[in-house]
Amino acid sequence: KELVLVLYDYQEKSPRELTVKKGDILTLLNSTNKDWWKIEVNGRQGFVPAAYLKKL
């Protein structure tokens, strides 16, 4: 499993997105899109802007 660090808080703006908090370490599911990465948070899957995340 690949992990990502959340660099900035992000509030979901659609049902396909997820809310994340700065400092969270989460599972990366897909990073093929350069702008939006798919991650998992508490069993939910969704997208967060790639600029808000850093691969560990």
Rank of each mutant, 00 (worst) to 15 (best):
K38L: 15
S31Y: 11
T19H: 07
L18G: 03
L5M: 13
Y10L: 01
P49H: 03
D24F: 07
V20W: 01
V48Y: 02
A50V: 07
L56E: 03
Y8L: 11
L56H: 05
K21E: 06
L56R: 03
K13N: 11
A51K: 12
D35S: 13
W37F: 05
L18Y: 03
R16K: 12
Y52E: 01
K38P: 01
T27C: 08
E2R: 10
D24A: 12
K55T: 07
V48E: 00
G43E: 09
G23F: 04
L18N: 03
Q45S: 14
L28Q: 01
G23N: 06
K55E: 06
L7H: 02
P49K: 04
Q45K: 09
W37H: 02
L26R: 07
L5Y: 11
L53W: 01
V41K: 15
A51M: 12
V6F: 01
S14A: 10
L56D: 03
S14M: 07
E40K: 05
Y52N: 11
L28M: 04
V41H: 15
V41E: 11
T27Q: 13
R16G: 14
F47G: 02
K54R: 13
L5R: 08
V48K: 00
G43P: 02
L29M: 08
G43M: 06
W36C: 07
Q11L: 11
K13P: 06
N33S: 12
V4C: 09
T19N: 07
P15S: 12
K54P: 00
L5T: 05
L53S: 00
K38N: 08
D35R: 14
Q11N: 13
K34I: 11
P49T: 01
R44H: 12
L56V: 11
T27N: 11
K21L: 09
T32E: 14
N33H: 13
E17K: 08
K22R: 14
P15N: 15
S31D: 14
L56C: 09
T27R: 13
N42M: 10
L53M: 06
D24S: 12
S14F: 08
L18D: 01
G46Y: 06
L56F: 10
K55M: 14
N33W: 07
L5C: 07
P15L: 08
N42H: 10
K34V: 10
V4Y: 05
Q45I: 12
L53Y: 01
S14K: 08
A50I: 04
K22S: 09
D9T: 06
P49E: 02
T32G: 09
L53K: 00
L53P: 00
G46H: 05
Y8N: 10
D35T: 12
T32M: 12
W37S: 02
G23H: 05
Q11D: 15
V4S: 01
T27W: 14
N42Q: 11
K34A: 14
V41S: 14
K55A: 07
N33L: 09
K55R: 15
L5S: 04
D24V: 05
S31I: 06
K21G: 05
T19Q: 05
L5G: 02
S14D: 12
A51C: 12
A51L: 14
P49L: 04
E12M: 12
E40N: 04
I39K: 00
F47W: 15
V20T: 02
K1C: 10
K34G: 12
P49I: 02
E12A: 13
N42W: 07
N30Y: 08
G43F: 06
K22G: 06
